[in-house]
Design a protein around this nucleic acid. Sequence first.
DNA 1: GTTCTAGAAC
DNA 2: GTTCTAGAAC
Length: 343
Amino acid sequence: MPVCLLVSEDDSHKPIQLHPQQPVTLGRGPQTKIKDKKCSREQVELRADCSRGFITVKQLGVNPTSVDDVVVGKDNQVTIKPGQRLYLVNQQYPYRVKFTEDTSTPRSAADLTTPSKRPHQMIREKIKSPANPASTPHTDHHRMSDHSPPPKKTLPSESDKSGSAGHWSQGLKVSMQDPKMQVYKDDRVVVIKDKYPKARYHWLVLPWDSISSLKALRSEHVELLKHMQRVGDQMVQQCPDAHKLSFRLGYHAIPSMSHVHLHVISQDFDSPCLKNKKHWNSFTTDYFVESQDVIAMLEHDGKVTVKDGTSELLKLPLRCCFCHKEQPTIPKLKEHLKTHLPS
DNA sequence: GTTCTAGAAC
DNA sequence: GTTCTAGAAC
């Protein structure tokens, strides 16, 4: 049976040995030499599964523990495998996990990048209730995977509402888990209504797999993205107004919210939640990247690149997406958009 | 991402 | 005076 070592990547102290299935609490203190008050004395609970080659990380502290660039969230747990990096708090204090036969002779750092059998990042419970069949588009259920939804919502403690687990940028991770928000789900994706819809119909398609943003996408995700687009298309098909509204499916080039999400949005932009220039330009300029373009880029280049200056697109003058006439203010734009609405 | 609000624009 | 935006705070 191999033993598991947690290796401080900045070499601040010697590796910590984790015994199989014995929970170890780690945080600020002499063992880690961490003095940062942002790091709780009991920041994480770690449990090594030596036979399967991963450790489970549960965030106990309020400030964010992360695996690579994905925040775990208070009371959430994820797995970490060799090759991944654990940051104890605030993207600081990096650790690698290492499985070895002999603790007395830890090998070089190169060994730490041993490829894992599967990119199985999050181990989570199965969802309790099935999707509402009435709102469920028909999809191919030809396979079941282990991409199960997470077990519970992330709730910041009453004493600290600014905890990063409850940080606004992590909101989608919470919403996608909430059965009340889900309008469709299968083994790979979940669909929720946008909490602040920018049009009459505005859904988000999210993969169960934790993919932080477009930047993290690789060729291996092509099939998943095609599936997300198919599900998005099906949401449009089942929409009662599909015959009179047009829809676009795409991604924000630089999203504010963590966790890759495909916008499926009707092109009326008739919504009180559409309030400012940023909202408008994020859906009507090249800041909005068509799903098919993302897929094509991934197939062609193996990654998604965002052009320089894309963030500047949000500051462009307000221009009607139908007749391209410039509008001086948001209220005027909204008034103008009514002239393009279907009768 | 939203909310709030100072001050710019009208 | 009111309307509206943009940036800070969350």
